[in-house]
Structures are given as structure tokens and as C-alpha cells.
């Protein structure tokens, strides 16, 4: 079984986000970019499936700017076998919407015929939480989102999902799309020898036009602003003062 893993290049999760003064968006020039943390978990899970003999090949794919090849090299260094880069934007500030990403991924799936697509549940930049579900819809496949446990049983995947009330386990027919949550696994660090080896692994480069997909956005960004700041309050001396303050506010 082949496993396809879409990965996104996003601002590193440790970087403080700055909104541009003109309200045009978040400043991404000269900031550290990394693989979306949820996608790292998906890559790790795919590699573990391969190590367990369940998966035969792990293919990483990224859609975005040309620099996303660095993200793909990271996936290759972790253990993916090969990578596909679909260049769909020239400017790092242009985010390709989940619908367009899903359309391109659907074409990649048609060509690659994986048995499983493992994706992060959301990207930490646009926080849409949509690509996996949309891809599943376009392919008419089953979907299991927010996975904290994944077991392949024959032609089904048994997936435990993190939901509002606790955990839900469902069984989905393969081929399937599984989107992963934080507690599925702890991604490995790529070793230096593996980083060197990754440079020699195949990386195909395509464009959105190769797949005939129109990536023009459906959502026009009117403006981007800083959220209302919250003022720090006061440090109270002890528990008695805290109780008195809360009573004063009429809250307890």
C-alpha cells in the first residue's frame, strides 16, 4: 500500500506572528518557516506504517511556493521515499486555499493511486481545518478526522478520533483520508546522515497548471488586523486578597 502525505510550509510555530502595518496580511518575509506541525505527525505515522510493513512506499507532496521543496526535503529526511512539489504560487504571502489544494491533491491521488492519504488536521497559519475533508469529498472516499490512533485491519482503517465529548472510534473503508491530531505520535528528528541522503531522493516538480486546476482564491482578503490586546491586571498578595477581589467583581 502506498501512503500519500501532503505537507505544508508554514511559519515556524515558535515565531511570533506580526501583522503588516498596512493590514495586508501577516509578515512572512525573512521569518523562519517549517513543516506544519500536524503534517510532521502525519509523515511520522506514514513512516511507522512502512517500518511495520503495512505501507510499501511513502510519498510526500507539497503545494505552494517553490521554497516548499525544503519542507519536502525534511519529509524525505524523516523517511519518506520520494516527493512531489506542485508550484502554485510565486509569493510566500499567497496562501493556496484548501479547496484548490484538495483539487490538486485529488489529481495527484488519481495519478499515484495511494491506499491511504495521511494529512495534518489543520495548518497553523490559516487554521482552516478543511483540506482532508475536502479531498475526501472530491474523491468520494471515506474520511476519519482528528486521529489519535490508527490501525490498519485488512481493507479498513480503525481510527480513534479526538472529539468534543472524548474519543470516538470508527472504521473506514480504504482507500481513505485520515487527518491526524497531536497525540497520534511524536515525530522523529531527522539524523544528519538521513538529511544528506534525502538530498538524493527523487523530487518531482509540477505546477498547478499541469493538473489543470485553477487556484484563484474564493475568499478575498479585505484586511488583516491585530486582535484586541488584553491588558495585564494586578498581582495580588495572597489568597484572601484574591477572594476579596473576586467578590468585589460579583463573580463568586
Amino acid at each position: 500500500m502506498k501512503v500519500l502525505v501532503p505537507v505544508k510550509r508554514v511559519i515556524d510555530y515558535n515565531v511570533k506572528v506580526r501583522v503588516k502595518a498596512d493590514g495586508a496580511g501577516v509578515d512572512l518575509a525573512n521569518v523562519k518557516m517549517s513543516m506544519n506541525p500536524f503534517d510532521e505527525i502525519a509523515v511520522e505515522e506514514a513512516i511507522r506504517l512502512k517500518e511495520a510493513g503495512t505501507a510499501s512506499e511513502v510519498v510526500a507532496v507539497s503545494i505552494g511556493v517553490k521554497q516548499a521543496q525544503e519542507t519536502l526535503r525534511t519529509a524525505l529526511a524523516m523517511g519518506a521515499d520520494r516527493a512531489i512539489l506542485v508550484v502554485a504560487a510565486d509569493d510566500v504571502h499567497q496562501d493556496i486555499e484548501p479547496l484548490a489544494v484538495a483539487k490538486i491533491l485529488a489529481k495527484v491521488v488519481e495519478a499515484e493511486e495511494p491506499g491511504l492519504v495521511l494529512a495534518g488536521k489543520q495548518a497553523i497559519d490559516n487554521d482552516m481545518n478543511a483540506t482532508g475533508q475536502m479531498l475526501s469529498a472530491l474523491l468520494g472516499w471515506s474520511q476519519a478526522t482528528f486521529a489519535s490512533e490508527l490501525k490498519i485491519e485488512g481493507d479498513s482503517a480503525v481510527v480513534t478520533r479526538e472529539v468534543d465529548g472524548g474519543l470516538q472510534t470508527i472504521k473506514v473503508k480504504m482507500p481513505a483520508i485520515v487527518t491526524v491530531d497531536l497525540r497520534l505520535n511524536e515525530p522523529r528528528y531527522a539524523s544528519l546522515p538521513n538529511i544528506m541522503k534525502a538530498k538524493k531522493k527523487p523530487l518531482d516538480e509540477k505546477t498547478a497548471a499541469d493538473y489543470g486546476v485553477d487556484v484563484s482564491p474564493r475568499l478575498e482578503i479585505v484586511k488583516t488586523t491585530e486582535p484586541a490586546a488584553r491588558q495585564a491586571g494586578e498581582i495580588v498578595a495572597d489568597v484572601d486578597t484574591l477572594v476579596a477581589k473576586l467578590k468585589e467583581k460579583g463573580i463568586v
Binding site: 511559519i11 506572528v17 497553523i124 474564493r218 478575498e220 479585505v222 488583516t224 486582535p227
Partner: peptide, 17 residues
């Protein structure tokens, strides 16, 4: 309006759909 980047920015978007 919707929050992006974990609520570190608020984006106003107009849908053409």
C-alpha cells in the same frame, strides 16, 4: 471575520462563492 495564526491575527474575508 475569522482568527488565523492561533488568534494572533484576525482576517476579514469576502466570499465570492
Amino acid at each position: 471575520e475569522r482568527p488565523i495564526y492561533a488568534g494572533n491575527a484576525i482576517q476579514t474575508v469576502k466570499s465570492k462563492d
